[in-house]
């Protein structure tokens, strides 16, 4: 009798696990199918096209590694890499400095803290394209009208600054929130001990606050870098890569020339290389910054 009981007990959980598994599967499989259809399949197809001279229409031939070899000698691709890296680098720095300052401000003992936090988060919920078009109008009509200058967007040497401002304006919202949550993990008593030890102002930030929020700094650096390397919407809305291709980001070039420039195969190769570059940079960043994180 006793034995039978224990056997039944052994069997029972197994059955529920399979039921649970079936539920999981029912939820997961449709998503997996969709993901495969709209994400994995195009990725594989793009990878295959990168070995062809497909124009986006008509017939095509296999060209082996030819596209990849050409990538490294193509001036326009090189220029877009330079622009994208420059933009990503400076915007990441700008965003992190500004959002850290904002977070420190919004974490202080001030009035209307929650309301202000909500307000500063607003840019994040707007679409990048919308923001881009608003700023386009702002740079094209409002700023020149006030300062009696030509539009910054028409300047080959300065248009990237406009792109940087727009990218930063929107990204700061999310980064600030991440820094605020980071600052809230620092226990108050650490600051109290610091107050008695004489750590105030800058030394308080340098010796107490910053070391304790480095994990959040890492996340922000990596996310920023990745997002800005893949910048597309803002370019689309602001400059369309111009003037004179001076603000042509890699994603934009891939889209533009791949879709309407008859370089589908070539830009697919570009996309594959770009994918590898981004993964490499992110992994490298994580490794490097992780090693700097304090082991608490």
């Amino acid at each position: 009798m006793k034995k039978k009981d224990s056997q039944a007990e052994l069997l029972k959980p197994k059955k529920t696990v399979t039921e649970r598994e079936r539920t999981f599967a029912m939820i997961a499989i449709p998503i997996l199918i969709l993901f495969f259809l709209f994400n994995t399949l195009p990725l594989i197809k793009g990878f295959i096209y990168s070995f062809t001279n497909f124009k986006g229409y008509g017939s095509y031939e296999w060209v082996g590694l030819r596209n990849y070899i050409d990538l490294f000698t193509d001036a326009r691709v090189g220029k877009s890499y330079l622009f994208t890296v420059k933009l990503a680098f400076f915007t990441t720095i700008l965003v992190n400095i500004v959002s850290l300052l904002m977070a420190l401000g919004l974490n202080a003992k001030i009035k209307f803290k929650s309301a202000l936090r909500g307000m500063y988060f607003l840019p994040n919920i707007l679409g990048a394209l919308v923001v881009g078009y608003i700023f386009n109008y702002f740079f094209t009509y409002i700023v020149p009208a006030i300062f009696h200058t030509t539009s910054i967007l028409a300047s080959g040497s300065k248009a990237w600054i406009a792109v940087m401002i727009v990218c930063a304006w929107q990204a700061i919202a999310m980064n600030t929130i991440i820094y605020i949550s980071g600052l809230q993990t620092v226990p108050e008593d650490v600051y109290e001990a610091g107050m008695l030890d004489g750590a105030t102002g800058w030394s308080k930030f340098r010796h107490l606050t910053f070391p304790l929020i480095i994990p959040f700094f890492t996340i922000n650096m990596v996310l920023c870098m990745k997002n800005f390397l893949m910048v597309f919407d803002q370019i689309m809305a602001l400059t369309k890569g111009g003037p004179a291709q001076s603000t042509e980001s890699i994603s934009f070039l891939i889209y533009n020339n791949g879709m309407s420039g008859g370089q589908f195969g070539f830009q697919s190769a570009n996309a594959v290389i770009f994918f590898i570059v981004i993964v490499t940079i992110s992994v490298f960043q994580m490794r490097f910054l992780n090693s700097k994180e304090e082991q608490l």
Partner: peptide
């Protein structure tokens, strides 16, 4: 910091890092 006082906190308040 200007009071020249040192305190042992009830909850220690050590610098975790």
């Amino acid at each position: 910091k200007d009071r020249d006082i040192a305190m042992v906190f009830q909850n220690y308040a050590l610098y975790p890092h």
